[in-house]
Structure formats: structure tokens, C-alpha cells
Design a protein around this nucleic acid. Structure first.
Lengths: 148, 148
DNA sequence: AGTATATAGTTGCATTTTCAACTACTTTAG
DNA sequence: CTAAAGTAGTTGAAAATGCAACTATATACT
């Protein structure tokens, strides 16, 4: 979206990056909806919990990993709890805090979502990248993330 | 976020792509807020209008360009109108439709936002890409967009 | 022409997200 | 030990978003 020099690559790359991201997310969420599955955000939360040691994480940590504001995550977690995909457990060391723990149903839901999600990633994104390009993307973006 | 083979580049690139995008957007919006400027979405709309012939676009076209649902755009436009940055004009050819036209104040707001926005793009994103990488990103993402 | 279908845009309602308190507990410093 | 400051998480109210229904107009079909 930015401005001038529409032909200078340096200026074109950011708008393309933005457009690509939003169109891909749009498509993936559509696919999940069509399959009557929960949205992308749920997958992220479930997957972070599944990977975590003891399949549990403090709200704070979880929020950081999925890039959500704290209050936002509180309510997203409420919804997941209501859906039976995770539960909260008080934290023994720090009585202010609590853990989110993924349930069996949560594990299963994530597993059900994966084929649909994965197919979209492959078909819309990954299939357009050869090995060299993949490496370039990873290196460049990792650099950005480290600098943040 | 996806699943297995955390070490296979092909699997790692998508989660990194997602994380990079959300952290960058987060930072840029923070910078705009700090500078007491409107959010990114406003910039997009203003810039699309500024570029457009006669500095006006039909709602429909505008929505597609900024990747927003129609109803969403209606209300975003309402807010921009309320802020005096654009106005609506009935379309003579098609009496169902209307144009969004950017105002002088809209042009100025966009111009005020650019230094802050541009600085963030450069400092968080573009500065991490050399010429070759920039080309790779553009080519790969353009390919994805075309296929959508 | 006359009806059926499609398109542009808006609106009501439910859901989601954000912002600013607020509670409860922990840590630091005197 | 106590007071001050910091941290974890939740909550109420307001703003933003998405979905489905709706109005108005345009296009296609018979």
C-alpha cells in the first residue's frame, strides 16, 4: 500500500506481502468454515498447548505465542473451555496465575483440523515455493523476528 | 503453527510467515498509535483512493483492493466520512452505487501518516531484505496471488 | 414488455476485539 | 515486617467485525 516508486522492488514488496497474507488467511478460514471446523485462531491455541510440556501453558505464555492481547486470550480461552477443548488449572507456584490445559477433545479437534488446514497451506502457499525460495523466506523472516 | 517435522523447512516456513506478519502489524500499529495517527486500515483506504483515477472508487472496488468484506467497508467508510477524510457521491451510471472520494483532509492525513508508516516498514521489514531476497519474495508471493 | 435473477450497498444482530479499570497475589526496598 | 510497585489474569463497556437479511437498481431471459 505504501507510496511512491511503484516500480522499485523495495517499495513493492511490502504491499505484496500484506495482500498475500490477508488473501491466504481469508481462503484458509473459508476452507475451515466449509468443513464446519473452528477458525484458525483455535488451531493455533490448541497446537501451542499440544506442543507444550505437560500440554499446558500459562495464559501469559500462550498469549505471547499466539500473538493475542491478554484480555483477548482470556475470552478465546473461555470459548475453548465452553467447547470442552481445554480447561484451566490453578498454578501451585503462583496463586495469581492459572494454566490452560488441552483436553482429549482438544487434541482430537486439532487433529481433525489439521488435514484441512494443512491442505490449504500446501495448496495455496507451500506449493508455490521451491526449496531455495523456502530457505530465503525462512532466513529473511527469522531475521526480522529476531530484531523485533 | 502447523504440525509435524518441525525441522523440515517446508513445514517451518508457514508458521514463521504468520508470526512475522502479526508481529510486524502489531509494531506498526503501535507506532501509529504513539504518533496519535489513525490505524493502518485507514492508510490503506486513503492510499487506494488517492491512487485511483479521479481519486474515487466504488465501494465494491475499494473493498476488493483493501481486502475487506463489503459490510465492513461500509462502516469503515462511515468512520472516515465522520472524520472528514472522504465523502460519498452517488454514481450517475448506476443508481445503486456510490463513489468514495478522498477529501483534501484525507490526502493530508495520508501524507502525515506516511513518514511514520514508511519508517516502520523500512526499519522492521525492508532493511532485512537484500535485493535478491526482495526479488524472491516478490516473485513467490505474486505467484501465490495469481493462483488465488 | 414482464418476470426472474444478479449486483451495489446498507443495516440489525450476534460475536469478537480492544481499552481501561480492577482484583488478587508476588516481589522489591526500606 | 511493611509499604510500594509490579505481574497475572479477568471483566465491563465501547468499538469493530462478520453474517444474514433487506432495499434498490440493473441485467438476462422468455
Amino acid at each position: 500500500m505504501p507510496i511512491p516508486n511503484e516500480n522499485d522492488p523495495k517499495s513493492r514488496v511490502w504491499p505484496i506481502f500484506l495482500a498475500t497474507h490477508s488473501r491466504l488467511i481469508e481462503r484458509i478460514d473459508e476452507a475451515l468454515t466449509r468443513a464446519k471446523l473452528p477458525p484458525l485462531a483455535w488451531y493455533d491455541v490448541l497446537w501451542e498447548l499440544e506442543k507444550a510440556p505437560d500440554q499446558r501453558l500459562r495464559m501469559h505464555d500462550l498469549a505471547k505465542r499466539v500473538v493475542l492481547s491478554r484480555s483477548n486470550l482470556t475470552r478465546l480461552a473461555d470459548r475453548l473451555v465452553a467447547a470442552g477443548l481445554l480447561y484451566r488449572e490453578p498454578c501451585p507456584d503462583d496463586r495469581r496465575g492459572s494454566y490452560c490445559v488441552i483436553t482429549q477433545a482438544g487434541l482430537e479437534t486439532r487433529k481433525t483440523m489439521w488435514p484441512v488446514y494443512g491442505e490449504q497451506i500446501e495448496g495455496l502457499f507451500a506449493c508455490h515455493l521451491n526449496a531455495a525460495e523456502t530457505e530465503v523466506l525462512i532466513k529473511a523472516m527469522t531475521r526480522m523476528l529476531k530484531a523485533l
